[in-house]
Amino acid sequence: MTAPATHVDYQLSQLDQLEAESIHIFREAAAEFEKPALMCSGGKDSIVMLRLAEKAFYPAKLPFPVLQIDTGYDFPEVLTARDNWVQRLGAHLVVARVEDAIANGVVVDDGKTSRNRLQIGTLLNAVEENGFTALFGGGRRDEEKARAKERVYSHRDDFGQWDPKNQRPELWSLYNGKLHGGEHMRVFPLSNWTELDIWHYIGHEQIEIPSIYFSHTRRVFNRDGMWLTESDFNPLKPGEQVVEKTVRFRTVGDLTLTGCVESEADTLDKIIDEIAVARVTERGATRGDDRFSEAAMEDRKKEGYF
């Protein structure tokens, strides 16, 4: 909230309206589902979710655990921010590791499949093992065409799949949480937020986010037009050369696939200025996994992607 004093005109800013809507969604899902969990990658969207959940239940602690899928290829700075948040909120953290899922034969690492895709099987296995009936996700409808039609309560069948042609109508703020055995719900409290809203909110709330969102010096190499970080997980291919650049990340994910952009923005205000005039979407700029086909996101979502 921007002004806790008297609202003489009874107006809420759009950011306050978004916050109120998201808090409503958190409370609704926490009341209606037996065993929800909040999916947290440690990225900016999941951190905004943590903040909204904190506000929704204050002064009580989060009434659900925080679930992280550890790809094994996560940025250390992101894990640090996640740990700080979990500790400050006194939340219960559940980590499901892609490494463990590979070792247990839950998913198969054929050397060609990205960690992002292997997360799907790891996640669905964690849902089954823990008996989660609802997962809060940080997906926003402005991110990608396939997301524009996603419901706030997005139903998944007992294979964890999304059927875009057979979604439940969603009216007013009356969400339908009915489930049958084996099914679960994805709940998206940030559905109506845009990338710029997320940054304005982080700026307004002055909350901690991973340091890699801010401009820093990094050893990077160019692959398929994207700057990727130098890492043992990401061996150079012939012809690729490591250079030092001043960069920041617009999204965080599997570090072998998540590109950074050249940027001098080292404060929240500068990032907001940069985003406001950005001419390329965050996924188009920095996510190798969405580039494979025009319907890449739609396909992964149907399989049970976040």
């Binding site: 396939a146 039609k149 109506n192 739609e298």
Partner: peptide, 29 residues
């Protein structure tokens, strides 16, 4: 604004899609 693959294939909109834009005056959904 064509979202789902089946819609692109058929050239029609079959579901509610949400779009976002903002001007200095307002945010729109």
């Amino acid at each position: 604004t064509d979202g789902l693959r089946s819609e692109r294939e058929q050239g029609i909109t079959i579901d509610v899609a949400y779009r976002y834009f903002a001007t200095p005056a307002r945010k729109f959904i």
